[in-house]
Design a binder for these strands. Structure first.
Length: 596
RNA sequence: GGUUCAAUAGCUCAGUUGGUUAGAGCGCUGGCCUGUCACGCCAGAGGUCGAGGGUUCGAGCCCCUUUUGAAUCGCCA
């Protein structure tokens, strides 16, 4: 059993001890990071959340019992150590250590807790994610992970302070709520009192925040947990956190302005990075035409070029059939990739194929200016030179061309552009390039269901000048929606909402459902709107993604204390788990099918 | 649900053309060591090569099936 800490009180954190404290008697408590036993001299580096400090137990000077106890200390034991802070002699200074100029000469050592040999070394950074998550408490002892969670905390604090100072009030909305159709699959919670009925965990506080506007709170925010029962990704967890807000009597400029300033403040406070305002704004259409993406990474060029007109009428059937079908021929200039081998170019073709492109044409411009190309049978030297010119191709470049439906062309080239940039290693993750993407399409056609879906959600307002198109040409209607994009990641998005009943009816009409159906799905919100609705709009940031970008991590799991693995289970708690049969009885449920 | 990659000691990995008793570093255990800080030196323990089947005189390696993990596409209003 561990010893008591009775009579001892921690006087300082390990990482905060410095030369000004030399001569003082201090008490530290923490975990054994490393023990180095030289025989009659033992060094222990002790770790707490602030860092490391070296403790010495000198066999010549220390009490015999103290020394014997120190010999039994092992990694990850929890110790309380009292002693005096002493200067290290110059040759013993460790300049790689924050506390490397001093050490603690121990006069008392208590083993508060022993520890079994851990399944992996806390300092080992190469351990597999499933093992790390099973023993997440050990994993979280690593200073780099602790630092990320401290940064996350600082970001939340900055957000709260800023929004408070700007007149926002934080209101909590329910976790147990009503399932609303459309969108992601919801996590359901069975009701005990109404057997067979369910609550849903919120995918976002969307409807509640709009109702708060109806109530007159004017400016609301919440750092809100949200749930979506969809497959996981490197940047997607089933439960995640949004910085959610809604404002009344505003237009899109008002919402964008306050949120630009919020991000400016966050980046200043956490990274001391200055963001120039206002941020660039780019309509959706332009983002697609130039970058093949609605969340363009504008840290580098290689923009898309439309060569449809230039190649129209060629003998190349792939180009011609794409153009005839209403598609286009576009490409990018992968600058300085002229030395790519056939194998590397084929690999780029594979990337394009993942996005449904059937192939990828290419033109290499060698260092001496000669052209090598997959198009040699279809274009003469003159025509090729004209294409190269359209891309501003110079010696050492590689031009990649895709012909298909516009969606495929944009998806494939947008992905290729990022893939090439990664391969060339030209992306600096300390370079923060923000922009707003605006004027999104209001509606999205689903081939599968043969109907329109709201691209954002059904309460997103169309742009005023496009309202009449709702009935004549729904797919051309642009929304008063905006996404904040940072380095190719959508970090936040929102819209100005519909607050007029007539317009809402037109919207439901375009979505192909009747007022009765709408009433069934969103009745309580529509009811609320009957009693005096202010014009309003809002936005939600993905806090997890913001933390990822600020801390420069690739995995969302690094910014969440207790994340799930790919199949949405938790290796540490072993959730989800089988309910007790009596619980099922209480809920009036029976299980039809179990995963083997 | 699809595609790709991976699985060998507690951890991270190597393992040649299919050929003797499967290795390394770290960790762990024991011993020695008073200035280490990736301590050093000596000794030691530790393996169902993910599982099942097949080919072969012989399989960690080849083939089939399967399980698990990761990335990615679909999906995520």
């Amino acid at each position: 059993m561990g010893e008591s800490m009775k009579g001892l009180k921690r006087s300082v954190y390990c990482g905060e001890i410095n030369e000004t404290m030399v001569g003082e008697t201090i008490t530290v408590m923490g975990w054994v990071n490393k023990r180095r036993d030289l025989g009659k001299l033992i060094f222990i580096t002790l770790r707490d959340r602030t860092g490391l400090v070296q403790v010495t137990i000198d066999g010549n000077r220390a009490d015999e019992n103290l020394f014997k106890k120190a010999e039994t200390v092992r990694g990850e034991f929890v110790l309380a150590i009292s002693g005096s802070v002493v200067n290290r002699s110059p040759e013993n200074i460790n300049k790689d250590m924050k506390t490397g100029k001093i050490e603690i000469d121990a006069t008392e050592l208590r083993i508060l807790s022993e520890a079994e040999v851990p399944p992996f070394q806390v300092a080992d950074t190469g351990v597999g994610i499933d093992l790390r998550l099973k023993y997440r408490y050990l994993d979280l002892r690593r200073p780099d992970l602790q630092e990320i969670l401290f940064t996350r905390h600082r970001i939340s604090q900055t957000v709260r302070n800023f929004l408070d100072q700007n007149g926002f009030i934080e209101v909590e909305t329910p976790m147990l709520t009503k399932d609303s159709p459309e969108g992601a699959k919801a996590y359901l919670v069975p009701s005990r009192i109404y057997p067979g009925q369910v609550y849903a965990l919120p995918q976002s506080p969307q409807i509640f925040k709009q109702i708060l506007m109806v109530s007159g709170f004017d400016k609301y925010y919440q750092i809100a947990r949200c749930f979506r029962d969809e497959d996981l990704r490197a940047n997607r967890q089933p439960e995640f956190t949004q910085i959610d807000m809604e404002l009344s009597f505003v237009n899109e400029d008002d919402v964008m302005d306050v949120n630009e300033r919020l991000m400016q403040k966050v980046f200043k406070d956490t990274l001391n990075v200055d963001i120039t305002l206002p941020m660039l704004r780019m309509p959706y259409k332009e983002a697609m035409e130039r970058y093949g993406s609605d969340k363009p990474d504008i840290r580098f060029g290689m923009e898309l070029v439309n060569i449809t007109e230039l190649v129209r009428g060629s003998s190349f059937a792939v180009f011609e059939s794409a153009i005839e079908a209403g598609g286009s021929v576009r490409g990018i200039n992968a600058e300085n990739c002229g030395n790519f081998t056939r194998k590397q170019i084929d690999a780029l073709g594979e990337v394009a194929k993942e996005y449904k492109a059937r192939g990828l044409a290419w033109i290499t411009i060698t260092e001496t200016g000669e052209l090598k190309t997959s198009l040699t049978k279809f274009f003469d030297e003159d025509a090729l030179r004209k294409i190269v010119e359209a891309f501003n191709g110079k010696a050492g470049d590689l031009i990649l061309i895709c012909a298909d439906k516009n969606k495929v062309v944009f998806d494939a080239l947008g992905a290729l552009r990022l893939d090439v940039a990664k391969k060339l290693n030209i992306l600096n993750d300390k370079d923060f390039k923000f922009l707003w993407v605006t004027e999104f399409p209001l509606l999205e056609w689903s081939e599968e269901d043969a109907r329109f879906y709201a691209m954002h959600h059904p309460f997103t307002s169309p742009m005023e000048e496009d309202i009449e198109l709702l009935e004549t040409d729904p797919k051309s209607v642009r929304a008063r929606a905006y996404d904040m994009v940072l380095n190719g990641a959508e970090i936040g998005g929102g819209s100005i909402r519909i607050f007029q009943r007539e317009l809402q009816e037109k919207m439901f009409n375009a979505l192909g459902f009747t007022l009765e159906q709408a009433q069934e799905r969103f009745g309580f919100l529509l009811n609320a709107f009957r009693f005096g609705t202010p014009p309003h709009g809002g936005l939600a940031f993905g806090l997890d993604r913001i933390v990822m970008l600020i801390t420069g991590t690739d995995s969302i799991r690094d910014v969440i204390a207790f994340p799930k693995v790919k199949d949405a289970s938790c290796p540490m708690t072993d959730a989800p788990s089988h309910p007790d049969p009596s619980q099922l009885r209480d809920l009036g449920l029976s299980v039809l099918k179990e995963k083997e």
